[in-house]
């Protein structure tokens, strides 16, 4: 696109969706993909560009768990804690991740390489326990397997 400032990228994305009905959520997805998260100035640019009150943009953004208004890390780890993963032992997988990366849930590693959070069902329940790292899902995990997986990043 030839632009170099992050906010220019946001403006370009907004332009692309302008006039489309229900554009806000697709725009939020696209901007987050570009910037990694949704900072305040990006939300303000989106609000002005789509002609939606900033309060509404903020309200919508923070309603959904996949959107983040703070910078997390290069890789986001989401550990499923729903029923099937619960009875298949996600707790041990979670402990292994915490131990390996030396972080708690809701924290990033010092080098900002990994951020750890919990999630509800990922829809691969016959192969529990499961986690997502960025947009990929990993299944049938054990503490050993998850440590090897993290080492591959």
């Amino acid at each position: 696109m030839g632009c170099c400032q992050p906010i220019d990228k946001v403006t370009a994305i907004v332009e692309q969706y302008k006039g489309e009905k229900g554009a806000l959520i697709p725009v939020l997805h696209a901007v987050q993909k570009e910037l990694g998260y949704l900072p305040k100035d990006a939300l303000e640019t989106i609000a002005a560009g789509l002609n939606i009150p900033a309060s509404e943009v903020y309200g919508t953004t923070t309603f959904y768990t996949l959107f983040s208004t703070k910078e997390k890390a290069e890789n986001i780890i989401r550990v499923c804690e729903s029923g099937p993963c619960h009875v298949s032992g996600y707790q041990k997988v979670l402990e292994a991740i915490k131990e390996e990366l030396n972080i708690e849930v809701g924290e990033a590693t010092e080098d900002k390489k990994f951020y750890l959070e919990m999630t509800a069902c990922l829809g691969v329940c016959a192969e529990a326990p499961a986690i997502m790292i960025n947009d990929k899902t990993y299944v049938n995990l054990t503490p050993e397997k998850v440590k090897a997986l993290l080492a591959s990043f």
Partner: peptide, 9 residues
């Protein structure tokens, strides 16, 4: 999103 459900996928 119903936990345990993996059919529509």
């Amino acid at each position: 999103g119903e936990p345990g459900t993996a059919k529509d996928r």
